[in-house]
Design a binder for these strands. Sequence first.
RNA 1: GGGCGAGUGGCGGAACGGCAGACGCGCCGGCCUUAGGAGCCGGUGUCGCAAGACGUGCGAGUUCGAAUCUCGCCUCGCCCACCA
Length: 830
Amino acid sequence: MTSETPTRTRPERYDPSSFEQKWRERWEADQLYVARDDDPRPKKYDLTMYPYPSGDLHIGHWYAMTGPDIVARMHRMQGFNVMFPMGFDGFGLPAENAAIDRGIHPAKWTVANIDNMRRQMRLMGASFDWTREVVTCDPDYYRWQQWLFIRLYQAGLAYKAMGAVDWCPKDKVVLAREQVEGADRRCWRCGTPVEKRDLEQWWFRITNYSDELLDFSSVDYPEPIKAMQTNWIGRSEGAEIDFPTEIDVAEPIRVFTTRPDTIFGATFMVLAPEHPLVSVLTTDEHKADVDAYVARARRETEIERLSTDREKTGVFIGAHAVNPMTQERIPIWIADYVLPGYGTGAIMAVPAHDERDYEFARKFDLPIRYVVAPTSGELPDDAAFVGHSADEVLIDSGEFTGMPAAEAIGAITRALEDRHLGQFAVTYRQRDWVAGRQRYWGAPIPIVYCDEHGAQPVPDDQLPVVLPTDVDFAPTGVSPLQSHAEFLHTTCPVCGGPARRETDTMDTFVDSSWYFLRYCSPNYEDGPWDPAKAAEWMPIDLYGGGAEHAVMHLLYFRFFTKALRDLGMVTVDEPTLKLRNQGQVLGADHNRMSKSRGNVQAPDELVERYGADTVRAFLMFIGPWDQGGPWNPTGIEGVHRWLGRVWGAAQPGSAPVPADAEGRELLRALRRLAHVTIGEVTDDYEGMRFNTAIAHLMELTNALVREREAGMAGTDAYAEAVDILLRLLAPVAPHVAEELWERRGKPYSIHAQSWPEADPALTAAETIELPVQVDGKLRDRLVVTPDTSAAEIERMALDSEHVQRYLAGRAPMRVIQIPGKLVNIVTPRD
RNA sequence: GGGCGAGUGGCGGAACGGCAGACGCGCCGGCCUUAGGAGCCGGUGUCGCAAGACGUGCGAGUUCGAAUCUCGCCUCGCCCACCA
């Protein structure tokens, strides 16, 4: 109960600059947001993706981080022991490029950027627990990453092998397949078209987990992310089938197909130009042509890929294979539309039922034989018939003729299995993750090479393998570490003889594949994390971040978690239970913010003008958080005005006047609204619908302003509603909520108060306004109480003069009542 | 070509199959001001003086009732793309 004496001094205006800084300093000094280990309360691990220290926190960071901050703040007030940590993704190419372009050492550049971004992040008033900060380029961090790498290496999950890899000619570095973007295959960092190179590389065996990564049953992920990861993994079920060749010394050609039902229509074979059997099978007569084609395919891969012209090319190699079902001799071709890295690198071509094979057959005049037909309708005149509908049957397919195609897939595969010519098989598009980078600014791969003992992991007691600081950064295509003699030359851990260090560094996505585990015990010195603490905090309860990481970070961190589980190091199957992606804040012109367009909003100057609370609230009000939206320069004024109204509404009221009936009704309505708002805002925050949460807070504010106008500001009901409003507002606008809370004489801190709870007795409506429809169109409204009987409501509805007019004397055919919702009167149809 | 998502006032956007347009911006009118690019109050989907009619990209369907569900189109965005 509040009973302030009305002080009729000039009311103070809402001026965030007079208190925001003060509160941020006090919260930090009081360690208000520091998560405690071994707290008996239930935990929440809320997380937002740590940023790359590019040097400047932009409005998109604010947008991404404020959402999870609101949820974390609510969770804290709801009595959870909340961990909401922050860190920096310290390694990466931009630091190295800055070194090359401007002569600043990557370490210096990175540290300076981190300092600036820490300062900017503190301006947000986000409730980060800075005591758990993790910086990945810190040797105390990457030491344990190297330790983990060795564990993965020993388990066979990290390995070195030759492989065709994507190579960025500008950054002079290999890229993982996930880091090559678009139809024209460009580097994810710099946009340069990539090349294919055969190089010996470090890989992570992520494909061991392809099947498990397809299983999302235990996690709550956005549908688009699940779809993207599923497509990326690209699981295909089918069969591997052996096609014998006529050359005795050669093994049969093994193909992968998803359509074994069409095998009777396989009229030729196609091998990838790189296929190992090509040199064995090619006849002397065709050798010159084949060699020329193979050489051209290797040389022109890249140009081929960039061209939009998809004309099929290929050459006959002079040899034949035997179709194991028809016993027919069929010619063997090579063509670059068959890829060496997918399936078996060879196909049985069924031109009647595959568009690519069809195109190829037309161009080179090869036979086309239809073996599947729709039971209704006709085969296409001039196209492959690839349909997958239920009503297809085999034709011209020996003993399988007439069998439904769906059934024939299994039947034919089993028949081949019986003859040891094939078996069921599953193929994935996903490849292993190329883990090494030929660049300086990353965690060194902790392997040494001895002439005698080969590749050997660096012993644990010699970790970390520290990145030397005095190196030449000019990118040459090999790691700058190769020219650093002191780093390069070392001794073999087995024999003590001379050895060389691995000079590749790890992909930065390795750093982000386990940082969330390090947060659980950031200073732990006996391992990457304290198993007890990881068990306490993991899994993450809410993870927020950008959808652009769908097949990179968000796939890798799932893989790492599963691999570490299999190594007995964590107990969870998935890193996060719930993932949510924020949308993009666009410029006022609806375009992506970019310096060249001149539509970038710098958060610092906005904070100076409006205060952090207004910027936070406005960003959350723009639209649905997962959708983003355009920056509206006048919209932010509206949100600022709203917080000014909150300020006014929370000022002390004059002594209550004895309420008349009308006044009592006003107060009842206010209490109801306040308690209804609790439920709505709580649900909206938990569902990350911040825009509608703020709309509800605005409605409550508007109601308070009206009540104040009506002279109710000194009442208990009014004070209760203000206290509810401030606590609901605290997650969005933490500073002004704290300031007003204190001014109202409430105990510090509002952020440590308990979350308000709605009183069901108050939220229940006393009267209900019931829409009355005639044939689904709104014609009138009834005001009833919750206990008005259905019969009474029906009588009232039919009595309505508006309803009477539309009934026009006809008797209603039906009256439909949805209790508490509406009445619909159905008239007879003409 | 394949997958996913989205089309609602002048604008951003609300609406468990049940009152379309919450909330905010903008605009219009008023109050207060020497003044207003401050503040406050009221109005604001379209057509119509009104009663009313019409309205959620287009076309069908399901339903007593559809922005919402189904099918087919159109447009835009994102992801993948010669993946057998």
